[in-house]
Amino acid sequence: MSATAPPAHWRRMRERYRLLGSRCETCGATFFPTTKVCPKCRRKGKIAQVEFSGRGKVYSYTVIHSAPKMFEQFTPAVVALVQLEEGPMVLSQIVDTDHKELKVGMEVEACFRKLFEQEQSGIISYGFKFRPVNDHWGKYYDNKDI
């Protein structure tokens, strides 16, 4: 499909690899996907690239049971709208999660995964997905016996 052709993949690659968006330096608003114009400041706006932290909360989610061919192997896959801590909303899959723990408001962080492969001999598209946040690993450093 032309929409997944190597040049089309490449044009958006950095944004997908690093979760890049835009920030208006005039008003401070952040945007995803990247924008060329700040809708509030218009011509007075100054748009800069921003790398989001990847932290966010699940705004809504679904478990897909019926998917097009290129995503078929991942079903049942969790797709969610995630509201980033900087504000913008992004859509991607939630991985490494038990479907039973899914809920609106769940804290997630971005990770780097394969989005799909174009046939066995085609290019591989990578990008951000999300996984549940675990902030409790600090305890391991306090336990002398690890």
């Binding site: 991942f74 991985v95 490494d96 780097f112 995964r113 394969k114 591989i124 997905k129």
Partner: peptide, 13 residues
């Protein structure tokens, strides 16, 4: 690895 993990994704993490 998960189906969507490979050497590149593990290396990046």
């Amino acid at each position: 690895p998960s189906l969507d993990e490979d050497t590149a994704t593990i290396a990046v993490e």
